[in-house]
Nucleic acid binder design. Structure first.
Length: 316
DNA sequence: AAGACGAAAGTGGTTGA
DNA sequence: TCAACAACTTTCGTCTT
């Protein structure tokens, strides 16, 4: 068994958080009770194995293909070389009809892809997303178009949904809010299409982890590295106290950062943190109280605040 | 005046009959 | 398919600094 990574979600059977991703078998399973949580995991990673024992040139896949080009450089047309003279009249007309439809469908898909991939590039560069994410989003979008999932939805929202999905799969989640702002489409709409498309394409999503948001939020708030690692520390403890399950990961991340900043004398207002994280102050307050209660941080916080107070006085 | 706090009502999504 | 439900938001009044 090859354990490639561990996720912080929870086993529904025994509540253990010790889950294993077994990429070889495509399973997620619980370490303590052995329950298989997910056996239809799709491995989107690249395939580098040698299938030929001798190590000769037999590999899966050919030249690198890119999904950010609308036809991936591989166009297919129906029957340009068919021998028409040897067909009957019926076959011939059938052939023309098929070719016409194939042409229509493929040109429609291609036109759509051309537009959409332009949009995708624009949004992803606006959000400064890495090429690997863009590539994956393009792949997801391409599949969505081919399965006719875009029909009835706006192209923009599907693009945004694909990017949102790709970000999460790469453990650099963006909030729906950010996607909405970057793509200029409605937040709820993106959420809806995102759910629809992942369901239809059988892409399994685990809940995003609060920790994945910390570095980005911290730098947006210009908090130093120590505060950031303190926040991650808090997050880990909160997870052990079962404070994270069922709650929105961004809210938890925001509260952890807020507390960490207070403890390290780098106070940020709830509003500032809330804006960065895309949640409300109320949510931060709720999470923050839970964290204080469960981790017994009140006294430590008290001391930190007094220290900050003194420092402020000395400056005056 | 700004920030923090918390109550109350509203929203959209999930779940289970 | 519908209702119950939990999390989260919006809004607003009050308290603290």
């Amino acid at each position: 068994m090859v354990v490639t990574s561990q996720q912080s979600s929870r086993c529904p059977e025994c509540g253990s958080t010790q889950l294993l991703w077994n990429k070889k078998k495509g399973e997620v399973l619980c370490r303590s009770c052995g329950l298989v949580l997910d056996d239809t995991m799709i491995d989107f990673s690249q395939e580098w194995r040698e299938f030929d024992e001798g190590g000769s040139a037999v590999r899966r896949g050919g030249a690198p293909m890119t999904y950010t080009q609308y036809d991936r450089g591989l166009g297919t047309e129906l029957g340009t070389r068919a021998d028409l003279s040897r067909m009957g009249r019926k076959d011939r007309s059938k052939f023309f009809r098929l070719r016409k439809w194939q042409y229509r469908i493929s040109t429609a898909i291609e036109r759509n892809l051309k537009m959409a991939l332009g949009e995708l590039k624009r949004v992803s560069s606006f959000l400064k997303l890495p090429g690997s994410v863009e590539e994956e989003a393009a792949r997801i979008y391409t599949q969505a178009v081919q399965r006719g999932l875009v029909r009835g939805r706006s192209m923009e929202s599907v693009v945004a949904g694909a990017l949102y999905t790709a970000c999460r799969r790469h453990n650099i989640p963006r909030t729906l809010e950010e996607m909405s702002e970057a793509s200029g489409t409605d937040k709820k709409e993106i959420g809806r299409t995102y759910r629809f498309v992942t369901r239809e394409l059988g892409i399994k999503m685990l809940p995003s982890r609060p920790g994945d948001y910390i570095p980005r939020f911290a730098s947006a708030l210009r908090l130093n590295a120590k505060t950031q690692s303190k926040a991650i520390d808090i997050l880990e403890k909160a997870r052990q106290k079962a404070l994270t399950s069922g709650r929105g990961p961004t809210g938890i991340a925001a509260a952890a950062l807020y507390v960490a900043a207070l403890l390290h004398g780098e106070k940020r207002t709830q509003r500032e943190v809330a804006d960065v994280a895309g949640v409300t102050e109320v949510t931060i307050r709720n999470r923050y109280k839970e964290i204080l209660d469960e981790l017994k941080l009140e006294k430590m916080l008290q001391r930190a605040l007094e220290r900050a107070e003194k420092a402020a006085k000395r400056r005056r």
